[in-house]
Computed example of a mutant assay.
Amino acid sequence: MSAELLPNARPKAANQKIGLIGVGRMGTGMGLCLLRHQVELHIKANKSRFGADRLAAAGAREHHSIAELAPHVSAVVLSLPSSREVEAVCLGQDGLFVHMSRGGLIIDCTTSYPGSTVALAEQAQKRGLAFIDAPVTRSPEQAELGLLNAIVGSNETLFPAAEGILATFCETVLHVGDVGKGHELKLVYNSMTMGIAAVASEVCQFANALGLDLVTLRSLVSRGSTNSGIFQAFVAFLLGEKPDVLAVSIANSAKDIGCAVRLAGESAVSVPILAATAHKLNNAVAGGKGELTLPHLSHP
């Protein structure tokens, strides 16, 4: 199936009752956009109260358990760290698959593992529910502005309903195939991001060790085909211009590249450079840098 690109799609979520599970930095931005589009938003908080408090103050209704939230909504958006958390939210006696009403739609905006996604979709169907993948790109700041990009894996029947919800917090909705294909493409995309980040970090260290000026290096790179947004972000971070740029954690980056390498292995694709990137990120996590942001890779 060819990809269908829908920029600036008109949101059709007004007056719907929608759940949001995972109100970290990205999820909070999504929730604020949903509220601005007159959605009746029901949330289940993370450990941190920051996002839940912001959303509750803006009109969201907070629930203390998934079992309590599920009967109130016809659709749920998930914004969680990994497939492990998605499975925990969906399965089990207190999960969505038990307590959500038949006909409900679950939209997984997490960067999850495709095999898990397909298995969850099959189990959801047996319970009269629909489960699709819609991982997103861009930053929490862009989430709050409604400028994310969603990569959707769903069948043709479910896509319009999902697109109407996603369009409240996404600038672009990209339909790439059936369930699982969204997460496959997101892992390919993220593997490129992490690979370039690993190269950028080493190049910056290399230049520094030689006593070369990063401003001069940036000027040179900016004029050639080697230029990239990742490299520019690393240099801006090292020069103190943008200390919060690329706010994804090294641990989360290691998780994503690890999933990509695993997917490649299952597909009999050789990816030695991506495997080396995964090794570099895992070493950084083992060295205590896991909770630091990705540009900290460039520090010795």
Rank of each mutant, 00 (worst) to 15 (best):
A150I: 01
L274V: 12
F97C: 03
A247Y: 08
T226I: 11
Q38R: 15
G211V: 09
S2M: 12
A130E: 14
A254Y: 09
A134F: 09
N282A: 09
M26I: 12
I107K: 03
I43R: 05
G31S: 09
G92D: 04
S222I: 01
G92T: 03
L69Q: 01
V86Q: 06
K17I: 02
P11H: 05
N282W: 07
D213Y: 04
S154L: 07
F169R: 01
L35N: 01
M194C: 12
S270M: 13
G153M: 05
C33W: 03
D133A: 08
G177V: 09
A236F: 02
L69H: 00
G24P: 10
N283F: 11
I250H: 00
L20H: 05
A52P: 09
I257E: 00
R54F: 04
G258W: 02
K47F: 07
R36V: 01
Q38D: 14
C259I: 03
S116N: 14
N8H: 15
L263N: 01
D53H: 11
Y113M: 10
S79R: 03
S116P: 06
I230R: 06
F231C: 06
V76W: 00
N190K: 02
S228M: 09
M100R: 00
C204L: 08
F234P: 00
G31W: 08
S225N: 11
T117F: 08
T117D: 04
H183R: 06
I18V: 10
A207D: 01
C90P: 03
A45I: 09
V271C: 12
V285T: 02
F97R: 03
V248H: 12
G229F: 02
V269K: 06
L220A: 14
F169Q: 00
G29Q: 04
C259Y: 15
L217A: 04
A124T: 04
G104S: 10
G287A: 10
L105M: 09
A200D: 02
Q232G: 11
T172F: 10
F169I: 04
S228N: 10
L238G: 06
S267L: 15
G224L: 10
L41R: 05
G153W: 04
N283G: 14
C204E: 02
R61L: 14
H296T: 07
H63Q: 06
